[in-house]
């Protein structure tokens, strides 16, 4: 799949000397949903701001659709829609005028039918003549997306679009993003919510302290780095781990009524079969066995901690 955004060795040093990005390389594929995960101050917003033209880069090169974001900024920016992190809207304008303004800024001819369609997709059509100040927080968030879509962008940047948004609206937004993907829009979203990335992203990028730690297909990442845990419930409680089982890294839980055993899914020998055999040899009777896949959050925390070490 060809890259629609190409980021090469990009660094950003602010005037106070703070290095927000340090040699970032990233290729974003056409029509994908890329979730950029990272803690506060990792450089997510700075990276988006540079791509969209709000901030300038110190060194490196960024191309959008093959156009350089600095020397060919008009062509590059025409392709981009940006939903900022903060709710930033002209409060006294109407919803329709607000999105008309956004479309006009990008040099697109008037197209009321398209704008109506955008408002319908985002469940804002009945508010088209309402003043922005009268909208609820969730509606304002959706209006920001409508403004970003007003000029029919090929690439959509969403900077923490669901921060402070209730669960229902968050899921609505995920549906909207998935709809856009079906229409061929490439979406890059930054988020704190691992659950969000897990739910909608095709690929996950992890950024911390201005460095991209990894970018990988979500499913492959979880398979590669995901660990599984097996929980073995016993019929009778034990006081300590029997000697026969001491070479397994077992953890005694539930007041001695269960063991937990963590294993690597990519390992050739997981040790599960021998563990179950040894449990029987030690005279322990099992009541139930369950397994649990580690979440993206565990992977993310593990990655960030690993780099800190």
């Amino acid at each position: 799949m060809p890259s629609v955004v190409s980021i090469q060795h990009v660094s950003k040093i602010f005037s106070d000397g703070f290095k927000a990005l340090d040699g970032v390389d990233l290729e974003i594929k056409d029509s994908e949903i890329l979730a950029l995960l990272g803690p506060n101050g990792a450089g997510k917003t700075t990276l988006i701001s540079i791509i969209c033209g709000i901030s300038s880069l110190t060194t490196g090169k960024i191309q959008v659709g093959g156009y350089d974001v600095e020397s060919q900024y008009r062509k590059a920016r025409e392709m981009i829609g940006l939903v900022p992190q903060e709710i930033a809207l002209e409060p006294f304008e109407t919803v329709m005028n607000s999105i008309r303004f956004s479309r006009g800024l990008f040099g697109k001819p008037k197209n009321e039918d398209y704008l109506d369609e955008v408002l319908k997709t985002l469940s804002l059509y009945d508010k088209k003549n309402a003043r922005v100040i009268t909208l609820s927080g969730g509606m304002k968030r959706r209006l920001l997306i409508a403004k970003a879509l007003a000029h029919e962008p090929k690439i959509l940047f969403l900077d923490e679009p669901t921060a402070g948004v209730d669960v229902e609206l968050r899921k609505d937004m995920w549906q909207t993003i998935k709809k856009l993907k079906r229409k061929g829009v490439t979406t890059i979203l930054t988020t704190h919510y691992i659950e969000e990335a897990e739910a909608i992203a095709d690929r996950i990028g992890v950024i911390n302290k201005g460095h991209i730690l990894l970018v990988e297909d979500k499913v492959a990442l979880m398979a590669r780095m995901g660990k599984k845990k097996i929980y073995i419930d016993l019929t009778k409680p034990v006081i300590e781990i029997p000697k026969e089982l001491s070479h397994y890294s077992l953890e005694l839980i539930k007041g001695g009524l269960a063991f937990s055993y963590t294993y690597d899914t990519k390992s050739e020998r997981t040790g599960i079969t021998s563990l179950l055999n040894d449990l029987q040899s030690a005279g322990l009777k099992m009541r139930d066995v369950q397994t649990q896949q580690s979440s993206l959050e565990d992977i993310f925390v593990g990655l960030v901690e690993e780099k800190v070490k």
Binding site: C52, R74, K75, I80, L105, G107
Partner: peptide
């Protein structure tokens, strides 16, 4: 942000 990110 809209002005700065627009092709103008």
């Amino acid at each position: 942000y809209e002005l700065l990110s627009a092709p103008i």
